[in-house]
Each structure stands twice: as C-alpha cells, then as structure tokens.
Amino acid sequence: MTIYPFEYFEPKELEEASSAFFEHGSEAAILAGGTDLLNMLKANILKPKVVINIKGVPGLSGIEEIDGELQLGTLTSIHDLETSKIIQENFPALSEAASFLGSIQIRFLATVGGNICRAAPSAETAPPLMAYDAQVYMYGPNGERSLPLKEFFSGPGQTVLAEGEILTKFKLPIPALRSGSAYLRHSIRQLMDLAIVNVAVSLTLDEDSETIKEARIVLGAVAPTPMHASAAEKELIGKPATLEIFEKAAQTAAQESKPISDVRSTQDYRRAMVQLFTRRALEKALPRAAQKN
C-alpha cells in the first residue's frame, strides 16, 4: 500500500520536538530509524498528519560510561549495540540480542529506543535491557522523568509514554564483579524471523564464586509484555549455581510464563521452550560470571 502524505518536521531541540508532539497529539508520529514506523505507514495502520523526525535532536545517541553506569541514547543503532566494545564486554546479552535483530540492513537503520517504543512482546532488546535493570528516561511537557524499564510496557504495542513524551535514553548499572549474562532466542529460522521465545539472564555470584547472589531471568514473546520470571529469580538466590538448580528454576520460569498460541507456535510448545532456553541461558551465563573476578 502507499503511504498517506504527511507534513514533515525536523526539530533541532528536544523541547521543540516534545512540544510539537504534544501539540499534534495522536495526529503525530515520532520517526527514529523508521523500520517499524514505515511498515505501519505502508500498511495504513497509522495515518499521521505530522511526522516528527528526531534524528536531528542533539544528545539522543551514543554509548557512554558515566559514573558506573552505561548511558545509552535512544537513537543508538542496533548495529552500534552489536559492535560496541563496552557493551560486548559488560553487557554481552545486549550485543547478542542486537545481532539477532533483522538483517545488517535493518540493524544500521533501527534504533534501540524504537525497538522499546514499538513494545512488541518479542522485542529483541527488551529482555537484556530488563535483565540489566535498565532505567528508561523520558522527556515531555512536564520535563524529564524516569522509570525502571519493566514498568514501561503496558501491553502489546503499548507503553506508558504520555502525550508529547519522547524516550531519550537508558541507564544501566555496570554489572558487579562475578556477574555473567546471556541471551538466547528460539525461532524457526535463524535470522529474519521473530522469536518464538527469547530469554535474557544475568547471574551474580557470591565471593565464594559458587552461591548465587542475584539473578534475573527475563522472558520475551510469552506474555503481553516482556516479563521477569520473578519466582524463578527468587528461587535461585542463595543456592549453589548447579545444573540441577538451573533446571528447577527453568521449570518455574515455564510455569510463570503466559504464552499464547499463534502462527509461530502453540502455547504448550512455547512453555516447553521457555524451560529449555532458560536453562541453556543460565548455563551460558555461569562461566561468564565465574570469569569476571
């Protein structure tokens, strides 16, 4: 289908972008990389009167370490996530997830903020960002606010962004010593396919390098929004990091997940895959945690 004509606006300041977005309300759409937006425009799912391209707004992209935190601008491309040395070393689940998103051509266009604002249940970068306790920053008519990313999604394709609000950046604490993490996804084709299940885990070990001190298990594509397998996370804490314990936690994670049946998979299969991929992800994260002394 063809795209309906719209007016086009390239704000040069964040405030200008946000007030234009507020003024036009639901008649406006923010353009970042455009890999989701252009598809929605072509399918006539969206017919905005105004498209606001935020790529000319300064300060919205880039990967920086500031005061023990990683700051990730909303416009940072998926390709940059995939290839950044700081991310590969400290947040490997995030670079792994990035490498699964679309194709090279898509990864050069797509942004991390766009992936999160689209709020697909299977969004590639959501589980790792949540597993790293990302805080998301927004700017709107009432100034800046921030939330833990896990509180940002309100349903499939839905977020808590208020009218006129623009996502600006993410902040991720640099993982503690003896932390390891991993991302896995299951799809019919290796690439250019959406996940049937995706999972990011992060483990932090005690000083004895055996006992689990902290754990995060975040599941995608098996609930209306990406979700923490909170019971499984709790179960792991204080336990020895053994395959048996991992298997039990993976079982719990599968029980907690709320998958549906759709064209990609049945509910039962998804649940079985949550168990398998959670266990494998924990197994992959463990040696990484043991290495980071």
Partner: peptide, 22 residues
C-alpha cells in the same frame, strides 16, 4: 517491507534497505 533486500543501497558505505528510509 524491509524483508527481501533487493532495494539495498549503501549509505556512507553501510548497507540499508532503501524502502525503509524516507
């Protein structure tokens, strides 16, 4: 739709799908 790659061009040397860029 960004899937097939026949519209690939290089932008500053990097491949992108030109159907997905205004």
């Amino acid at each position: 739709d960004g899937d097939c790659g026949t519209c690939t061009v290089l932008i500053d040397g990097n491949p992108i799908t030109s159907c997905m860029l205004l």
